[in-house]
Every structure is written in structure tokens, then in C-alpha cells.
Simulated assay, not measured.
Amino acid sequence: MESPEILVTLVGLSLIAFVLWYFFFSTREAVSAVSSSSGVQEVDITVKGGYSPDVIEVEKGKPVQLHFYRDEEASCSEEVLFPDFGIRRELPAFQTTLIELLPQQAGRFEFTCGMGMLRGSLVVK
């Protein structure tokens, strides 16, 4: 191989490594749910190329309301799945969808888009 081919290969491998690190190994800051006067824990989540925030902390045994606002029309973000809670919801573009759940046990519960490309976590303490 010649020098330009080696350089292009190294740059490509570096970009692949960065993408893998960013999506699978980088640390994300957790956002704690805000409790309303009625004791319901609420979080607003924006869906646009991912979930923001994508790590949400809540307390065990208290009801949770997740407000998903889908700020795009990409097909991947058309629905959200919470497999551990048996929840699958359509997310209409440019609308807010309410998801209510009651976490009964502590742990980390993943949520994803229908294709599994967009990911987030609900951390129950």
C-alpha cells in the first residue's frame, strides 16, 4: 500500500473507534426525575437523533411520567420500547407522548427505539 492508502485506512479506523466509544462506552450524565406535589416523578425527554436525557434516575415505588417530545421525522424514532415494563408506544413527530410506569424494583432498565439504534436507561434507586 502507498502512503495515501495507509493514511485513509488509519483515519477510517480511528473514526470507527470513536463512534464505537461514543455510543457504547462513553459515560453519560444522569438526570434525576422531578417530583411533583402529588408525588409523581416527571421527566421531559427530547427525541432527536437520540434521547436527551438518555439516563434518567427515579425512585423505586413512586409513579413515573416520561414526556417524550419527538422533534424529528426520522423513521427510527417512530416508537419507544421499554421491554422490562412491557411498554411499546408510537411517538408522533412534533408531539409529546406521555408514558406512565411504576418501577417496583431497583436496577437499570434499558429503553430503545423500535430498531434498537437509539438507547437510553431508566435507573431505579
Rank of each mutant, 00 (worst) to 15 (best):
L118S: 00
M1H: 10
G39R: 03
E110Q: 15
I56F: 10
S3L: 15
V8I: 15
I16A: 15
S75I: 00
R70W: 10
S35N: 01
E110F: 12
T96H: 05
F23G: 08
C113R: 00
G12I: 03
G12Q: 06
E79V: 00
Q65S: 10
V124P: 01
S14I: 12
G116N: 01
E5I: 02
L98E: 13
A93L: 06
V31D: 05
G120F: 02
E72H: 06
Q104I: 00
F18Y: 15
V19L: 14
S3I: 13
V80R: 00
S26K: 14
F68Q: 04
A17E: 08
L91A: 02
E78Q: 05
D44K: 13
V19P: 07
E72M: 10
R88N: 03
G107P: 07
S121K: 11
S35I: 02
Q105L: 06
T9Y: 11
Y22E: 09
L102Y: 08
C76L: 11
A33V: 06
Q95I: 02
E110Y: 13
T9H: 13
F25P: 04
V8D: 11
G39L: 07
S32L: 10
E5V: 03
E72Y: 04
V8N: 09
S36V: 02
L10M: 09
V11L: 14
G61Y: 08
T96N: 07
A30Q: 13
D84E: 15
R28P: 01
D54P: 02
E79L: 00
Q95N: 12
E59N: 12
V58N: 07
E73L: 04
D44N: 15
I6G: 02
I45C: 12
F111W: 04
Q105G: 06
T27I: 08
E79P: 00
D54Y: 13
Q41N: 09
R70C: 02
V40W: 01
G114R: 00
E29A: 14
D71P: 05
A93P: 12
I16S: 13
V64N: 07
F23P: 01
Q41V: 08
F111A: 03
P63H: 06
S75Y: 00
R28V: 12
T46E: 14
F25I: 11
A30L: 08
T9W: 10
I45K: 13
L91Q: 03
V31K: 12
D54E: 15
P83R: 06
V58W: 11
S75E: 02
G39C: 07
W21V: 09
L7F: 08
D84Q: 11
H67S: 15
G49R: 07
V123R: 05
E29R: 15
